[in-house]
Amino acid sequence: MRNLSNVIQKLIDKNTFPQRDAAEVMEQILSGKCSDAELGAFLIAMRLKGEDSTELLGFVQVIRRQAVKGRAAAPNLIDTCGTGGCLQDTFNISTLAAFVAAAAGAKVAKQVYTDPGCGCSSRQVLASWGIDIGTAPPDRMLKLLAKTGLTFLYLPVFHPRLEQLVRVGQQIGILNLLNTLFPLINPLKPRGRVLGVFNEQMTTLLAGVLRTQGVRRAFVVHGVEGLDEISVSADTRISELRGGQIETYMFNPEKFGLAEKSVSGLQCSSAADSAQIGRIILSGREESERTDTVALNAGAALVAAGLVKDLAAGFQKAREVLRSGKAWKKLEQTAEIAQSLAKKQKKPLRLLKNKRKTRK
């Protein structure tokens, strides 16, 4: 077993570990025998050096092996989670994209990171809609997937061995290795991905890692104004994985007839605000840059799921799903079945009525 202090020194000296050595390092970290100080130094040193694909694959190999086991009878399963680290305080775009994609027929198992410092936590948003993922055991969330085609995998529930590392990562208060690793450790091993990243250099790196993991179709994206999503407010760098090949290009919303809008239209102030924005969008009562952003990201998810041929077709399909009310019905169905599975009450919670005016 490697001494973590020696590992940290090698990282400071800009050394890169082969996959097997990286796996040994993660085994030591998850053993519970490292101090918080050692883990904090490791995370910072790793961030300063920068992650290599072989290191990420070694880390992920061990984390997945020690995750809560689960299986999903969905060969074209997809995930829409990203690294986090969006600089713009936007509403929960990837969570809404998951509902839209599921309403269009995709099977979605979206991971949800734990971040108590985040004002727009997906866990809190889902809870306000009557979907409790914070205390739900893994088998319940897998049953939710089987019944609705959609589920949410909460990090503390499916990866309890990461508890110390996650806590330390939150304490140091900067983007770190965990942000990079999180989208790669889905225990259900989805074959399609839409993965937003916090800087543009990461799109090709993580697309390559996904390819090695056996992912068939993926969009790894970064909005150049700081979004970890496909953006309507500026160009988006996309590394697209298809047929074992990776193509990296810039996407501009004007390609789909969308005028660039200010990113301020995507921002929210709290989880409650994000939940209310989500209700408006999923209800199909709004035509705005917010709706278009969700439709773009859901459209990419539909491509990753093999339901449409390209992003243009996916965007149009997602728009149709939103306008038809199918996305809202998927939210209601998911909340109802989640509560039924939890056996907390006989009737689902009533979703709060939207009192906002429709934006044009």
Results as ranks from 00 to 15, higher is better:
Leu181Thr: 02
Val308Ser: 08
Leu11Ile: 12
Phe91His: 08
Thr16Pro: 02
Arg319His: 13
Ser283Pro: 01
Ile8His: 03
Ser269Leu: 11
Ile337Ala: 10
Ala72Leu: 12
Ala106Leu: 07
Glu51Met: 14
Ser340Leu: 14
Cys118Phe: 13
Glu27Thr: 14
Ala313Cys: 06
Val221Gln: 00
Cys120Gln: 11
Ala109Val: 13
Gly192Pro: 06
Ala305Gly: 06
Ser270Ala: 07
Thr90Ser: 05
Ala74Asp: 12
Ser262Lys: 02
Arg217Gln: 15
Leu144Arg: 09
Pro156Cys: 12
Leu165Tyr: 02
Leu96Cys: 10
Gly50Ala: 07
Leu150Ile: 14
Lys357Leu: 15
Ser94Tyr: 03
Pro156Leu: 11
Met26Ile: 08
Lys355Ser: 13
Gln276Gly: 03
Leu4Val: 14
Ser264Asp: 13
Leu302Ala: 09
Gln339Val: 12
Gly192Met: 10
Val100Ser: 04
Leu210Cys: 11
Leu195His: 10
Ile337Asn: 09
Val112Lys: 03
Pro75His: 04
Ser324Val: 11
Cys34Trp: 10
Ile246Asn: 05
Phe91Cys: 04
Leu227Lys: 00
Leu210Ile: 11
Lys189Val: 12
Leu4Gln: 09
Thr80Asp: 03
Ala312Ser: 15
Asp235Ile: 01
Val321Asn: 04
Arg359Val: 15
Ala22Met: 06
Ser122Leu: 06
Pro348Thr: 09
Ala271Met: 03
Val197Ile: 05
Ala295Trp: 03
Ser233Glu: 02
Ile44Trp: 05
Arg242Thr: 14
Ser5Trp: 10
Pro156Asp: 11
Gly105Tyr: 02
Tyr154Trp: 13
Thr135Lys: 14
Gly105Ile: 01
Asp139Cys: 00
Gly325Ala: 13
Val308Gln: 00
Ser269His: 08
Leu142Tyr: 10
Val232Leu: 01
Ala45Thr: 11
Ile238Cys: 04
Val166Glu: 13
Gln171Asn: 11
Ala304Glu: 07
Val157Arg: 14
Ala136Glu: 02
Ala305Thr: 01
Glu27Asn: 15
Arg279Asn: 05
Gly257Asn: 11
Leu165Glu: 08
Leu195Pro: 04
Ser269Met: 09
Ser53Phe: 05
Ala127Leu: 15
Leu351Glu: 11
Gly82Phe: 06
Gly84Pro: 01
Glu55Leu: 03
Gly325Glu: 10
Leu205Asp: 07
Gly265Tyr: 00
Lys344Phe: 08
Ala300Gly: 01
Leu302Lys: 04
Val68Gly: 08
Leu177Asp: 01
Ala103Pro: 06
Ile29Gly: 01
Ala22Asp: 04
Lys330Tyr: 00
Met1Thr: 13
Trp129Gln: 01
Asp132Glu: 15
Gly244Asp: 08
Thr236Asp: 03
Lys69Pro: 08
Leu144Tyr: 06
Glu55Trp: 02
Ile246Met: 07
Met46Gln: 12
Arg217Trp: 08
Ala109Phe: 11
Lys189Ile: 12
Thr83Arg: 02
Ala73Tyr: 11
Lys317Trp: 02
Ala275Tyr: 04
Ile280Glu: 12
Asn199Gln: 13
Leu205Tyr: 03
Leu4Arg: 10
Ala136Pro: 00
Lys360Thr: 13
Lys110Trp: 00
Val60Ala: 15
Val263Met: 04
Glu332Ala: 14
Leu195Tyr: 06
Ile280Tyr: 02
Leu57Glu: 15
Val294Gly: 04
Thr236Asn: 01
Leu77Ala: 09
Leu153Met: 09
Phe198His: 11
Ala104Pro: 03
Cys118Thr: 05
